[in-house]
Simulated assay, not measured.
Amino acid sequence: MTIAYWIAAGLLALFYLYAGTLKALRTRDRLRPMMAWVDRLPMPVVRAIGVVEVLGALGLVLPPLTGVAPWLALVAAAGFVLLQAAAIPVHLTGGDRRIALNVVLVLLAGLTAWLAA
């Protein structure tokens, strides 16, 4: 189970560290080609999502690695399930029907949460 957790958590952490950093630092114009939904949300919300994603990525890795509050990994993984569950309607209501990545991320975050429990 430990190896499976680190594989799943590592993949999620890498994805969210990258995506969150982009959302936190890039302008709307530079995000638009990758994330069509950024036009429908205020930039402070997009930035906040990015910060949450970076913190969640750290929460998946650092607590189990250090042994300090390892329960935070479960919270981070569950948070990513909720984040992606909320992202799916945003994509669908905006006419962007590409939700396959969101579904994969929900499943991977759910698996990670189960492995962290």
Rank of each mutant, 00 (worst) to 15 (best):
L41S: 12
T21G: 15
L62N: 02
V68P: 02
L14G: 15
A86L: 14
G94E: 03
G10T: 08
W37F: 11
P33K: 11
V104I: 15
W71L: 08
A116D: 13
P70E: 07
V54G: 02
M34T: 08
P70K: 03
A116H: 09
V38E: 07
W6K: 08
V68G: 02
L14D: 08
W71F: 11
A100R: 11
P33F: 06
V51H: 07
G50N: 08
L111N: 07
A86N: 06
L41P: 02
V45M: 14
Y5H: 05
I88E: 01
A85M: 09
L25W: 10
W114R: 14
L14C: 15
G20F: 07
L25S: 14
V38D: 09
M43E: 13
I99G: 01
V75T: 10
G110K: 07
A109R: 08
G94D: 05
A85V: 14
A69S: 06
F80C: 02
T2I: 10
L74I: 00
W37V: 01
I7P: 10
D39A: 09
T66S: 14
T93F: 11
T112R: 12
R40S: 13
A76E: 07
Q84D: 02
A57I: 03
L62T: 05
L11F: 12
L58T: 00
Y16S: 06
A87E: 02
P33Q: 09
R28A: 12
L11I: 13
L17E: 07
L101F: 08
W6Y: 11
R98N: 13
L111T: 13
A24F: 10
A36N: 11
L22E: 11
V51S: 04
R47S: 03
V54Y: 03
G50R: 06
A76W: 02
F80R: 04
L92K: 01
V61R: 06
L60H: 04
G67F: 00
Y5M: 09
